[in-house]
Design a protein around this nucleic acid. Structure first.
Length: 244
DNA sequence: GTGCATGTTACGAG
DNA sequence: ACTCGTAACATGCA
């Protein structure tokens, strides 16, 4: 159930394995031969958006959890894992993940400045990308990983509410200053997501997602599958302005 | 059993 | 060749 902040938490939880050697590996995930992983030392762990990057000497494992993905560290699993990695007496099991092996240098593959969780996040670049898609609804753009890598349906919904922008607004009709504000809300909320998500108190911080009514106006939220992505969005049309 | 969920990708139609 | 839309795919929980 991951958005960018969950990936950062996942990375932190895996840090004890950094510098250690894979002693056993298995799983039904395609695109990787588990036997080939055994004996390799986990050199580093990074994330890009919703990608977990396990960096070994000669290659990187890219792990994506999709909508239902989960993982367990040193805990029993009900079903056979998509990917099981053991590091001596400790282990991690990933369920419902897609795995890719990356052999190219990561800097060639990833634009770190598009990652909302990265120190290299570049707001100006994101605004340019939004303005290059004037006929795209902002609710869709907030899910485009090439613009906001790591943003998902919760971050989308919360950032729109906090910036007071209607999800069905078109990118080309939103003033630049407003797009900047939205971008800043994406980053600020993602930090909040990370901070409170760690202690499972994220729910208390959600102002719009899965909420019944607008905390500003105390009128019921609309709940609608918006945009081409048809993902549910909670919004208030009293305080979220439609740039039509 | 049913329906739904923090996501992406494959594929066919146009 | 591209873009669009829909289906497909995993599991767990109410």
């Amino acid at each position: 159930m991951p958005e960018g902040p969950n990936l950062v938490m996942l990375k932190e939880n895996l840090l004890p394995f950094k510098g250690r050697r894979v002693t056993a590996a298995s799983g039904y995930a395609k695109n990787v031969d588990p036997a080939r992983l055994v004996g390799n030392t986990l050199k580093d762990i990074k994330t890009w958006g919703k990608h977990l990057l396990l960096i070994f000497e000669d290659f990187t494992l890219r792990i994506h959890q999709g909508l239902f993905g989960s993982y367990k560290i040193n805990q029993p699993v009900k079903k056979k894992a998509a990917l099981h990695l053991a590091f001596g007496d400790e282990q991690v099991n990933f369920s419902i993940v897609k795995v890719q092996v990356i052999c190219e240098p990561l800097d060639k593959v990833y634009d770190w400045s598009a990652d909302i969780m990265s120190k290299k996040w570049d707001e100006a670049k994101a605004i340019k990308k939004l303005q290059a898609k004037p006929k795209t609804m902002i609710c869709d753009a907030l899910l485009y990983q090439d613009v906001f890598a790591g943003s998902g349906n919760i971050i989308k919904t919360e950032a729109l509410f906090r910036a007071r922008i209607h999800p069905e607004s078109y990118c080309g009709n939103i003033p630049t200053e407003k797009l900047k504000e939205l971008s800043k809300e994406v980053i600020a909320f993602s930090r909040e997501f990370l901070k409170y998500g760690k202690t499972h108190h994220l729910g208390q911080r959600l102002q719009a997602y899965d909420r019944e009514e607008c905390p500003r106006n105390h009128i019921p939220f609309h709940e609608k599958d918006t945009g081409k992505t048809k993902r549910r969005t909670f919004y208030c049309d009293a305080c979220q302005l439609l740039y039509k």
